[in-house]
Nucleic acid binder design. Sequence first.
DNA 1: CACAACAAACAGACCGTTCGGTCTTTTTGT
DNA 2: ACAAAAAGACCGAACGGTCTGTTTGTTGTG
Lengths: 229, 229
Amino acid sequence: MTRKPAPKKKKPKPAARAPRRSQAERRDETRTRILDATLHCLAIHGYAGTGVAQVVAQARVSRGAWAHHFPSMNALILEAAQHLMARVYERLGAVLRELVQADGDAHRLVLAVWREFFASEVNEVYLELLVASRREPGLAEKLKQLSFTLERNLDAVTSQRFEPLPSAVTEPIELLLLTRWVLRGLALDAPLMPEGHLDRALAAWARLLGSQMRSKSATSAKDSAAARQ
Amino acid sequence: MTRKPAPKKKKPKPAARAPRRSQAERRDETRTRILDATLHCLAIHGYAGTGVAQVVAQARVSRGAWAHHFPSMNALILEAAQHLMARVYERLGAVLRELVQADGDAHRLVLAVWREFFASEVNEVYLELLVASRREPGLAEKLKQLSFTLERNLDAVTSQRFEPLPSAVTEPIELLLLTRWVLRGLALDAPLMPEGHLDRALAAWARLLGSQMRSKSATSAKDSAAARQ
DNA sequence: CACAACAAACAGACCGTTCGGTCTTTTTGT
DNA sequence: ACAAAAAGACCGAACGGTCTGTTTGTTGTG
């Protein structure tokens, strides 16, 4: 084993390029391993089925390591929810960026949001947390923050990228909210639905959405950068 | 599940004045007590939190009585789901009958469905079962039957009571499906939403719905009777 | 530079509790 | 008398959380 000669300052960022794994790196890696495993377990086994045993098995980490990093299972869930939030933002940004360059109509928008979010593991996890939050006040508070900031960002990008048609009866902001609810409800029913009904439902909603609003002509692509973060 | 007044003929001492409960009555009563308690526990504690202890405490029935009537917890859940189905049909019939006599527009329809179904305990239970069914194939099969027959009845009454407006882009049947999904997604987000947003969302959807279809002029009230049962 | 001393990260045994399901016993209706 | 119904003790498994012991990286001192 190689020895690290440079005695660094007390609390510096280890510059991310240590030849040997520093303590901070070890810590960070196992933490994210556990958090990722937790999200995966939530998607596979559900909220109630996600226990310490499942998480440490999925993360291939000892029970002691888990206990060293997280005081309780509830705390792990809360941190995992925050971890999930980062993924949601990342994925959302990717979808929006894609829709900016390919000037999409409502159909493309609906399909992209469905495929990238509501038909993905992210939504499975979010659904589990959302249902569980009805009995766990701490989790509910966390999700309230999450959805609040997400909604704010979404409102901003919506009002600058879409405009209502003359015959519309609803604003684009509310239409996007309705889209979220339609797709969420659809994702719940999807496992029970016959083949093909899903695409028909998505198409129906896309038609309805397209009859109410349209995307503004891309005035300046730079503005869309403000939606990030 | 019919309560029989027991026109017994065998024994010479029926004692019409004696309020002594027959075996069949005892059996039926404890069974429904347990089933009702199960649904209530599902609404209060959720699927994972509904165990034998909670059910027997809620039903005020001994553990042995439970074991005598139900072979396992899974079987109890399945029967409770069937029990719930009966309630859903009953409530649905009441809402439809009410809407028939008070010739309602889309706004009244949406509000009635929200209040009578999606904001009630029935939806809480159904949501728990729906989410749990993703990991329990037997439950998923049961719910598939339920939603299938419900959808068939709903389709029939929809196409005979509503007609699309000239400018509509979607059929009433699909609009009603979309309504189900909107309200389901809304019911999920409702606990996290600020005060007042809920009513605005319901109103927005009602406006959208009203711009697509209208109720047929009540041609004959007798036809609506076919929707029941 | 070497090495002791320390602290953080890790590993897994252990404990009290709770769960679903089975058992025996007692009550109740026929 | 007999059988169905009800009551509750009992059991093994699984859970979350705590405990003690071991490894690994960091740091102070000669």
